[in-house]
Write a protein that binds this DNA or RNA. Structure first.
Length: 521
DNA sequence: ATAGGGTTAG
């Protein structure tokens, strides 16, 4: 077994997953990529039989159980008619024999709430229905619902739920954080402060941590001046820490008042805290947005010289991406080099950005080298974004076959799965190469059936435009109807294009329907 | 949520 593994390790790359510290069976072989055969997987499983691996196996079993619940979710989702009030939804579920025989678990509730994360009435209806069946919600589920209600600007409902949670002593700092953030996001920063004032009634303490939470929610919503006033009131009872000041630095940068950000650094020093890598990185980020790279380099040098605030992978990644965005590719790659020189360890986000920069710089072979050699040798596993960058780049280079190989690798990967963005460049390539009936159909089918991805506005736009150009406007019109059914409004240009094509084909009913949609835009 | 990325449409 050991020799088998050894020989595999020589010819393949095995990535280490830090969270489980066990081998993930993920293999590169030269230019072609394959997932390991099940035989090989089971041999690895035997080799790595450790407590961590046992946990991984349990997770797999859990996943099998979850797949049966998938059908339960399907039944419930089917029964919930979108657009009804939460009470109507509750009633219709409560009177349904099939629904009432479904076993309720935390996992099922979480998944349902996730499914209805943009539909507060359904979320609330399902939540109440579970209660009616005698199910006791966890604090976590309450938190999710607080978030959903807040996101959909149902502030009264959110407040009521908070009161309910208070009675059951279920309010945590996390709950309060979500509520404050949603109030700030809804333009009601006074209510965010009110929640903070009531902290005691929830059995929580007003301390540095909760104060920082309040200040951060205000700063993120550009209410840094209000945050400042509140801080001045509070600081006699609650002592600030370094985070408090970093929050303000970020707040000032967000409203483009970098002078105040520098001033905050002085204030920080006055309180006995040294500006750290986060303080500097935040200001560097500000200059990146302004494309003021002179200042960026100046600050980078300053940091490298200073103690306690040397740039880290986050700092370098921000700078490199900003340079690439400004089409300064050579400089972007020099940052990567500089990072290597100072011995700063890369991570996945850095590699994603690097691969993207290399692709844009017209150096795809180097991007491939990073992906195939450098990443495996540093033990950093690729994620969905890494694959997406690679696939986009390969499609751009007209190397669709290699791109499809990578897609296949993702599909069989244990680490990450394709998302809608994975498919954009591949779909686009189908139009370029004319492989519409052969490949496009297959890809769309896989997206929906294999990966349960639903097409979004961008995907529909790309497809309708491509199909019109390929003289397949009947298919384009089907997609048009599908997106209307999902309440996704097409762009005006898409309508114009489709209308023109449909008229040429004498499809007058379709033309009429498109015109009706256009009137609403 | 104390900091970081990309992306379609001729």
């Amino acid at each position: 077994m050991v020799s088998l593994l050894g020989s595999c390790l020589r010819t393949t790359r095995v990535f280490l997953d830090p969270s489980f510290s066990c081998a993930l069976y993920f293999v590169h072989c030269g230019h072609s990529f394959h997932a390991l055969s099940s035989v090989f997987v089971s041999s690895l499983v035997e080799t790595f039989e450790t407590p961590h691996f046992a946990k991984r196996k349990l997770d797999c079993q859990e996943q099998c159980l979850n797949s049966t619940r998938q059908s339960d979710i399907g039944i419930l989702v089917e029964k919930v008619r979108v657009g009804n009030s939460h009470d109507e939804i509750l009633q219709s579920l409560a009177h349904d024999q099939t629904c009432n025989s479904i076993h309720l678990s935390h996992d099922l509730v979480n998944r349902l709430l996730f499914h209805f994360k943009d539909d507060w009435k359904s979320a609330l209806g399902v939540f109440r229905w579970a209660e009616l069946r005698g199910y006791k919600h966890k604090s976590e589920a309450y938190d999710t619902l607080v978030d959903i209600l807040g996101k959909m600007k149902q502030m009264d409902q959110m407040e009521a739920l908070l009161e309910e949670m208070k009675k059951g002593q279920l309010v945590t700092l996390k709950t309060v954080g979500k509520a404050m953030r949603r109030f700030s996001g809804a333009g009601q920063w006074e209510n965010a402060v009110r929640v903070f004032d009531k902290l005691g009634t929830f059995g929580l303490e007003k301390n540095t941590e909760s104060m920082n939470l309040l200040l951060d929610t205000l700063c993120k919503e550009r209410k840094v001046e209000q945050a400042r006033e509140i801080f001045l009131e509070l600081k006699s009872h609650i002592s600030p820490n370094a985070n408090t000041f970093n929050i303000f630095i970020h707040g000032w940068c967000k409203v483009c008042r970098v002078d105040e950000a520098y001033w905050t650094i002085q204030e920080m020093r006055g309180h006995g805290f040294l500006p750290c890598v986060i303080s500097y990185s935040t200001i560097i980020q500000f200059y990146c947005c302004r494309c003021d790279f002179c200042k960026v380099y100046e600050l980078l040098d300053e940091m490298e010289a200073a103690l306690g605030s040397t740039p880290n992978v986050v700092t370098y990644t921000s700078v490199m991406s900003a340079l690439a965005k400004s089409e300064k590719y050579e400089e972007a790659l020099e940052i990567a080099q500089r990072m290597r020189l100072v011995g700063c360890k890369p991570d996945a986000l850095f590699y994603n950005s690097l691969i993207h920069s290399l692709g844009r710089a017209g150096r795809p072979q180097e991007a491939v080298h990073v992906f195939e050699e450098e990443m495996p040798s540093t033990g950093i596993p690729p994620n969905t974004s890494t694959y997406n960058s690679m696939i986009a780049m390969l499609c751009h280079q007209a190397q669709e076959l290699k791109a499809l190989n990578l897609l296949n690798e993702m599909e069989t990967s244990m680490i990450c799965k394709p998302d809608v963005q994975t498919y954009y460049p591949l779909l686009k390539s189908c139009f370029r190469t004319g492989k519409i009936d052969s490949l496009l159909r297959q890809l769309l089918d896989d997206m929906v059936k294999k990966h349960h991805l639903s097409l979004d506005k961008s995907a529909y736009t790309l497809l309708i435009h491509g199909l019109c150009r390929a003289n397949k406007c009947d298919w384009a019109y089907c997609l048009f109807e599908e997106m209307i059914g999902k309440d996704i409004m097409p762009r005006y240009r898409t309508c114009c294009l489709l209308l023109e094509e449909v008229k040429l084909k004498h499809l007058y009913d379709a033309a009429k329907k498109i015109e009706i949609v256009m009137q609403k835009l």
